[in-house]
Amino acid sequence: MLRHTRTTARHLKRTFMAIAASVLSACASLGPVPGAHLDASDWGQATQLPVAGDGVGPGWHERRVGQRQPTLYRPTQHAGRPALLADSHGGDSLVRVRLQAGEPPAGRLHFSWFTDGLNHDADLADTAVDDAVVRVVLQFDGDRGRFAPRDHRMSELVRLITGEPLPYATLVYVWDPVRPVGTVIKHRRTDRIRKLVVQSGTEGLGRWNDFDRDVAADYRHAFDEAPARLEFIALMTDANNTGRHS
């Protein structure tokens, strides 16, 4: 689930809630799904962002992954907070927003998530079972001329399938059942997707967990370079690889 959000040009304030949410695959084929019910909800109105287009306002959209069963996203209230409930029966889809082109690199990111349980059949380092319980995804622009050959091949494949190239860099905040906080997990198929563990183990289940992250510092920790412009923020719950109900 996803909760209260506010932003300025240099300071992003977001709160995300996930009741068993999961992973973004930047290599997936994405197709648009109507998201008007998100924008009109209390949660959508609370997540004011400098979105692409005119003005500032909600701009979240659901996107499916190929022909896979989608995850169901429903705005709701939880413990007094506007929230987005993600319910996945072996599903695989995401909710995403595109930021304005004039936005500078992100400053601080505030988010909260809530889950009742972790998926212990999953492993974030294994692409065959890399479902996750909660995930907040940041996609950055950058110089794709610096891609390694395999990243160029992956980017062209993604463009053919989705109409969009592979993002220059994707930083994913995750809750891992076993790996310690601060661990960086590289995607096996491309070096341009890296997951950062910000919560570990079972401590914190069944309650809100609040985070305040320095996005630029986290990006440097994960990629060993300074970030360029933040283009997209996405949330995703998937359980397609393990077949679990998240």
Rank of each mutant, 00 (worst) to 15 (best):
R3K: 08
T7V: 13
T7G: 07
H11C: 08
H11K: 14
K13A: 09
T15V: 07
F16I: 11
I19F: 11
A20I: 06
A21V: 07
V23P: 00
L24Q: 01
A26W: 00
A26N: 01
S29Q: 04
L30W: 02
L30M: 07
V33R: 04
V33C: 11
P34Q: 13
P34Y: 13
A36P: 13
A36F: 15
L38K: 12
Q45H: 15
Q45P: 08
A46P: 01
A46E: 07
L49A: 07
L49V: 13
V51N: 09
G53K: 06
G55T: 12
G55I: 11
G55W: 15
P58R: 14
G59L: 08
G59E: 09
G59I: 08
W60K: 14
H61V: 15
E62S: 10
E62V: 15
V65W: 00
R68G: 05
P70Y: 03
P70A: 04
L72D: 06
Y73M: 13
R74T: 15
R74G: 14
Q77N: 03
R81Q: 15
P82V: 04
A83I: 08
A83K: 03
L85H: 07
D87E: 14
G91D: 03
V95E: 01
R96K: 12
V97F: 13
V97W: 12
V97H: 11
Q100D: 15
G102M: 06
E103L: 09
E103V: 13
E103R: 01
A106S: 11
A106R: 08
L109V: 07
F111I: 11
F114L: 00
F114I: 02
T115E: 10
D116P: 14
D116A: 15
G117Q: 05
N119E: 03
N119P: 00
H120G: 14
D121M: 11
D121W: 03
A122F: 03
A122G: 02
V133F: 02
V133M: 06
V134F: 05
V136S: 02
F140V: 04
D141Q: 10
G142E: 05
G145P: 02
G145D: 04
F147W: 09
F147H: 05
P149L: 01
P149I: 00
D151T: 04
R153Q: 02
R153T: 07
M154Y: 00
L157P: 06
V158I: 04
G163T: 06
P165Q: 13
L166S: 03
L166H: 01
L166D: 05
P167G: 10
P167Q: 08
Y168L: 01
V172L: 10
G182I: 08
G182A: 08
T183K: 13
T183I: 09
T183R: 14
K186N: 04
R192V: 02
I193Q: 03
K195H: 07
L196N: 14
V197R: 12
V197M: 07
S200R: 09
S200T: 13
S200D: 11
R207G: 12
W208E: 09
V215E: 02
A216I: 00
D218L: 06
H221N: 13
D224Q: 12
E225L: 13
R229S: 12
L230C: 03
L230A: 02
E231H: 08
I233W: 02
I233M: 03
A234K: 00
M236Q: 11
A239H: 00
A239C: 13
A239L: 11
N240Y: 05
N241L: 10
T242V: 10
R244M: 14
H245S: 12
